[in-house]
């Protein structure tokens, strides 16, 4: 019976030393479409194209219809990350490369059931269908990763030859 008595005492003590759980959201909740700028150069020896990262001297980015800038005269920038609208399926951005302006339109589907936790709730993630743009500075756009979520992965590549 001595062992049983010890177990009783242990279990009773255990109930009153229950852990407290944190009620704060500690997970990444920001969802951005991550974009890189690239250029293609032809090798004189192999005569093949190679892709290299492109640094933009001065970049301005804002959402169509929004006065505030996501990037305002940002110098020597190679990548940007922009938020997409969570309640619509199209987001448009005005992008000014130095003195040349293009408009980029992103078409996508929203998933608002991407659950993180009770503390963080849900976030809206996107799946890109298509990206189109005007072609003043931009030559072409490639979709690399259609899933836009909290992952730090490049989604689209913008090419300037």
């Amino acid at each position: 019976m001595k062992l049983i008595n010890k177990i009783y005492i242990f279990l009773t003590a255990m109930i009153f030393t229950a852990c407290t759980s944190s009620d704060e959201c500690r997970e990444e909740t920001d969802v951005y479409m991550r974009t890189g700028f690239y250029t293609k150069t032809i090798s004189p020896t192999t005569n093949k194209y190679s892709t290299t990262s492109l640094s933009i001297d001065s970049l301005w980015v804002n959402g169509l219809g929004i006065d505030s800038f996501l990037y305002r005269n940002k110098k020597s920038i190679k990548t940007i990350q922009v938020p997409l609208k969570k309640t619509e399926m199209q987001s448009d951005f005005i992008v000014r490369f130095n003195d040349i302006t293009d408009t980029i339109s992103v078409f996508y589907q929203n998933n608002d059931r991407y659950y993180l936790s009770m503390e963080c709730g849900c976030i809206v993630v996107h799946k890109v269908d298509e990206v189109v743009s005007t072609n003043h500075f931009i030559d072409s756009i490639s979709i690399i990763n259609r899933d836009i979520n909290t992952a730090d992965a490049e989604n689209i590549q913008i090419y300037h030859f």
Binding site: G63, P83, G121
Partner: peptide, 8 residues
């Protein structure tokens, strides 16, 4: 769900 940039 809030988005401070697009005011959603």
């Amino acid at each position: 769900i809030t988005d401070n940039y697009w005011n959603e």
